Amino acid sequence: MNVVFISPNFPPTWFNFCTALREAGATVLGIGDSPYDELRPELRAALTEYYRVPAMGDYDAMLRACGFFTHRYGKIDRIESHTEFWLGIDARLREDFNVFGQKPHDLEINRRKTGMKRGFIKAGIPCADGVLATDATVVRRFVAEHGYPVIFKPDQGVGAADTFKVAGDEQLDAVLGNLPPGYMVEKALSGDLLSFDGLTARDGSIVFRTAHHFSAGIMETVNERRHLHYYSLRDIPPELERLGRKTVAAFDVRERFFHIEFFRRDPSTYHALEINVRPPGGFSLDMMNYACDIDLFRWWAESVVHDRRDFSFERKYHAAHASRRHGVNYRFGHEQLLAEIGPLVVNHLEIPDALSGAMGNYAYLLRSPDQGEILEAIAKVEATA
């Protein structure tokens, strides 16, 4: 099996997908814009060949790279990046080279916010009311019907980039005077932010699933430079699992990771926010591995190469991401913090600049079977002087 992996060196732990593919028996062919000599040794060992392009967004260069691989190794069986930035290029390349997986028309449904909303409504999954902000009349009519606050977000965007809340007429007038095209407006939701996350096999069956609880929405975290923490749950709330499974089926997620966000108003009331047909961001995959003592990089590779789906797991721990931001005076210095919470820390590391707006600048990955212990440790990470 020939697998083209796009941007195999970023995010930083994605090299594990390539090593797992190689161990599963695949021929792994990498495309990226970093010099080959700068790739970590484990990644270089996993790649049969690496094609460097001048820029990842240059589709003609990506097309030539896949053409070269086809000429040299035969038909390409999979093309993947598992990264939000490159989902559109992945899909176009799959269509051009007739490769299994998501195509551009799929992204119209599961990457555009308007497409997601249509999918949720069709499947009977509660979600916020919203419309495409085609002009001021449409927006004002929507606000008159639903009231403030409302959220403006790009119909197609990465994370919470360029997403903002409007709470009154004066703000709305300013926005409508300078609103770029391609935005949608929706009723603001309130409640706890949770996610249903996992991996599906080729037939669409869910082979791994978990849930995470977030300290705040990504929009608030980015726009207000808040601390972000989130942690996994050992037991998935029943209504979250029911709606999460229904969403996976409705969007026909096959041989892919998924990250589905919901607002929970009370134990029986959830509203879908969005679906991402990729792994959750940051170090979430590592957290899921830590929580269950498994290797989801390997599980995905074996699912791809061998169509394997007979995996088993137990959520032994709550795993958490707690972060710090540069320029903040914290109560505990780094070494003192490690002395305080050291037994719970499974890793601590710098967060790449490309992810730091939402995730913070430095992450502490924690785990414990006790949720209270996790929350106490998070409070110490974030405590300011």
Rank of each mutant, 00 (worst) to 15 (best):
I374W: 06
T210P: 00
F5V: 14
G130C: 12
I218Y: 13
T163Y: 06
E80P: 02
R308C: 07
G57S: 15
S232N: 00
T269H: 14
D106N: 15
R234W: 03
F251A: 00
L193N: 09
D106H: 15
M219P: 01
R331W: 06
K187Y: 11
R325S: 03
V28N: 08
G147A: 12
L355K: 01
D58V: 06
M288R: 03
G32H: 12
D90W: 02
D295R: 04
G168Y: 12
H318T: 01
L179C: 04
S356N: 09
A188T: 14
A322K: 05
G130H: 11
D169E: 15
P149T: 14
A45S: 11
R72A: 13
F85N: 09
R111K: 14
A133G: 11
Q336M: 06
I109S: 09
E274T: 07
V222Y: 07
K122H: 07
G333V: 07
A201V: 01
V28G: 00
F17W: 13
T13S: 13
Q371A: 15
H259F: 08
E145K: 11
G372Q: 13
V4P: 01
P369D: 12
L176V: 07
I378N: 05
H82L: 13
M116Y: 02
Y183W: 08
G159Y: 07
M219D: 15
E350M: 07
G157H: 05
N9T: 02
L240N: 09
D106W: 10
P267G: 11
P369R: 11
D310C: 10
L366W: 02
D60V: 04
R22V: 09
G32K: 09
A358K: 05
I275E: 01
T163V: 15
K316W: 02
R325Y: 04
V150F: 08
M62D: 00
T200D: 04
D235I: 11
W299P: 00
F262K: 07
G333E: 06
A383H: 02
G342D: 10
R254A: 10
S34W: 07
D235W: 02
L21P: 06
R256A: 11
M287V: 01
N361L: 03
S312E: 10
I260S: 00
D307F: 10
G281E: 10
V131G: 05
E376D: 15
E373R: 14
